[in-house]
Design a binder for these strands. Structure first.
Lengths: 149, 149
DNA sequence: CCGTATCCATTCCGATACTG
DNA sequence: CAGTATCGGAATGGATACGG
């Protein structure tokens, strides 16, 4: 990435893909959610080449999705942490995961579960809700484009 | 795509990205949600090269995310429609869009709104919920990997 | 430990031309 | 209208070697 190909598309989906739609980027963010913090940790977990990882991490930092924290006294140890902007991608990852759970592996066969400790149970399936809190029907949706000023 | 690079990762996120994580694929699906059906329609809206579009559409059909319907008498007019599997990607697109609304454009400045006709109001922000229906805290989550059999 | 620099093979993508 | 075929340039990604 980041090919700047979708830069001029006035669409939040295209713009978001521009920032995290890369082949590796979302997996890096996934592992960050799952506890990875160090360069070598991402490298090992993902099996990604060093240069690619360095490139993606610096882009994520540049875009404010992760931050680089110095954790050594000598300035040779760093941690990469999700910012609030990055943590706010959790719904995206959850939606992707739940779709794969259902359509790739099938219900009950997913290779990992995300459990809420409080209840000991998996998260509820994410569903788009209307303003009144009830699930929306696709047929009832209307796209409204903002006019140019 | 579809580079088969993530094929062996036992992870629903990686597997889903394998199917729709391509640069163009999610935008094709987006336009399908927004009403595009014909080959030329996707071509024009996206500004994508014919061969790339043909490739992506055939993969989507192959993967059961879209279906190709003959709508001409002569067999020269087709429509591409989302299957149930494809329509079930709506939460993914919604999560991506809402993140971009907030973090790329800022609240109230998004270039498009998705309105529920019934209420005339935008969809609610998608948030992962626990089993009890309340929003989850990231700190309260635990990843549980399935053991091999 | 955390990168950068370089090389090379592969792939991607757009443009164009052509077919039914 | 809905593709297929081909071509060349660009970018990607992996491996390796090197440096702070």
């Amino acid at each position: 990435m980041a090919r700047k190909r979708f830069d001029d598309m006035p669409c939040s989906i295209a713009q978001t893909l521009n920032l995290v739609g890369d082949w590796w980027t979302l997996l890096i963010i996934r592992d960050a959610f799952f506890g990875a913090r160090r360069f070598a940790e991402f490298e090992t977990r993902l099996g990604i080449a060093k240069n690619i990882l360095a490139n993606r991490l610096s882009q994520l930092v540049e875009n404010g999705i992760m931050q680089k924290v110095d954790i050594g006294q000598t300035g040779t140890h760093y941690a990469y942490e999700l910012t609030e902007k990055g943590r706010d991608l959790f719904p995206v990852l959850t939606a992707l995961r739940q779709w794969g759970d259902k359509w790739v592996y099938g219900e009950g066969c997913a290779p990992m579960d995300v459990i809420e400790r409080k209840s000991g149970r998996p998260l509820a399936r994410m569903v788009p809700l209307g303003a009144d809190g009830t699930p929306v029907a696709l047929e009832d949706l209307e796209i409204r484009l903002k006019e140019k000023s």
